[in-house]
Amino acid sequence: MYAIIATGGKQYKVAEGDIIRVEKLNLEAGATVSFDQVLVVNNGELVVGNPTVANASVSASVVKEGKNKKVIVYRYKRKSGYHKKNGHRQPFTMVKIEKINA
Rank of each mutant, 00 (worst) to 15 (best):
Y2A: 01
A3V: 07
I5W: 03
I5L: 03
I5A: 01
A6N: 09
G9S: 05
G9P: 03
Q11N: 11
Y12G: 08
Y12I: 08
K13W: 07
V14L: 08
V14D: 07
A15K: 12
A15M: 13
A15I: 10
E16R: 04
G17M: 10
E23F: 14
E23L: 13
N26M: 12
E28T: 09
A29Y: 06
G30R: 03
A31F: 00
V33E: 00
V40G: 01
V40M: 02
N42Q: 13
G44V: 00
G44T: 00
L46N: 06
L46T: 08
P51T: 07
P51L: 09
P51Q: 09
A54Q: 13
A56C: 03
V58T: 06
A60F: 05
A60V: 01
S61R: 00
S61D: 00
E65M: 06
G66Y: 01
K67S: 13
K67M: 14
N68C: 09
K69D: 10
K69A: 11
K69Y: 05
K69W: 08
V71D: 09
I72F: 13
I72E: 14
V73Q: 15
Y74W: 10
R75Y: 07
Y76M: 15
Y76S: 15
K77Q: 15
R78I: 09
K79N: 14
G81P: 01
H83R: 15
K84C: 10
K85A: 07
K85F: 10
K85T: 14
N86Q: 14
G87H: 04
H88C: 02
R89C: 06
Q90Y: 13
P91C: 14
P91H: 11
M94I: 11
K96M: 08
E98K: 07
K99H: 12
A102C: 11
